[in-house]
Amino acid sequence: MILLSFKSLGGIVGHPLRWPSHWYVSNYEEAWQEGNLLDYLLNTTFVAMISVTVISFLSSMAAYAIARFHFRGNQFIYLMFLAGLALPIQMIAIPLFILMRQLDLLDHLASVTIVYIASGLSFSVFLLVNFIRNIPRELEEAALVDGASYWQIYWHVVLPLIRPSLSTVAILNFIAAWNNFFFPLILLTNPSRMTVAVGVMFFVGQYATQWNLLLPALVIVTLPTMLAFIVVSRQFIRNIMGGAIKL
């Protein structure tokens, strides 16, 4: 994809496997300007960051309550979160569309943000519950003896200890929100509010595709997720392995 992005349209179509004879760096400038990529990147960054922040906060609180407090319905609530892993959210696309229309949220970034948060909670809670259950209870009991409230225990004891697993939750949900194509396609219609996954498809026409612009655009929109994963890759792999052992 990177090599083809530096070719002309004729070179891409005629000789896709040949090394570029001339490097068309201008493809990137043209794709950036014609594709309105800056607006798409800002929209997607806003949606992804809000989603990741809310998912991390809500899932950690829910996981703490499920893992540490025994009350009527505790296991049922946990099973309801697990049930979310078995149900592809695309199956309820029509009810979601009707709901967003009734809430007057169609064609607003809030609609896809809410969907991302709801769809990301199940796996996040499932992952964090298993990490919290492996935290020694003695640490929390010592905090209780010192007069700490449950909120203070959650904030000052539990959160710092599960920070590595929270980074796993964050990167997985960030990539999912960044790459999601389905819900922005059905919930957003204004081109100025599109996310990058849908925005780059404007280079694809009914009868022709601007490959010399589409490929540079794909390279540009892929870079943020690649950089994010490179930054946290070591932590991510270590947490996945640790979670597999604990499960």
Rank of each mutant, 00 (worst) to 15 (best):
L3E: 14
L4V: 08
K7A: 10
G10K: 11
G14V: 01
G14M: 06
G14Q: 08
H15R: 15
P16Q: 11
Y24D: 12
S26I: 09
Q33H: 13
Q33F: 11
E34V: 14
N36F: 07
Y40A: 15
L41Y: 10
I50F: 12
T53V: 14
V54L: 09
A63C: 05
I66R: 08
R72N: 11
G73Y: 00
N74D: 05
I77A: 12
L85Y: 09
L85M: 15
I89V: 02
P95Q: 01
L96R: 08
F97W: 05
L99Y: 13
R101L: 06
D104T: 13
L105W: 14
L106P: 07
H108Q: 15
A110L: 12
V115H: 04
V115A: 12
I117F: 01
F126I: 01
V129Y: 10
V129S: 07
R133H: 13
I135Y: 05
R137T: 14
E138M: 10
E141R: 12
A142C: 07
A142Y: 07
A148R: 07
W151M: 13
Y154M: 02
W155T: 15
W155D: 13
H156Q: 06
I171L: 07
I171D: 00
L172F: 12
F174S: 03
A176C: 09
F183K: 05
P184G: 03
N190F: 06
T195A: 13
G199W: 03
M201N: 15
M201H: 10
V204D: 01
G205I: 01
T209H: 06
L213C: 00
L215T: 06
L215G: 06
A217H: 05
V219D: 03
V221M: 03
P224H: 00
T225D: 00
F229E: 00
V232R: 02
G242I: 00
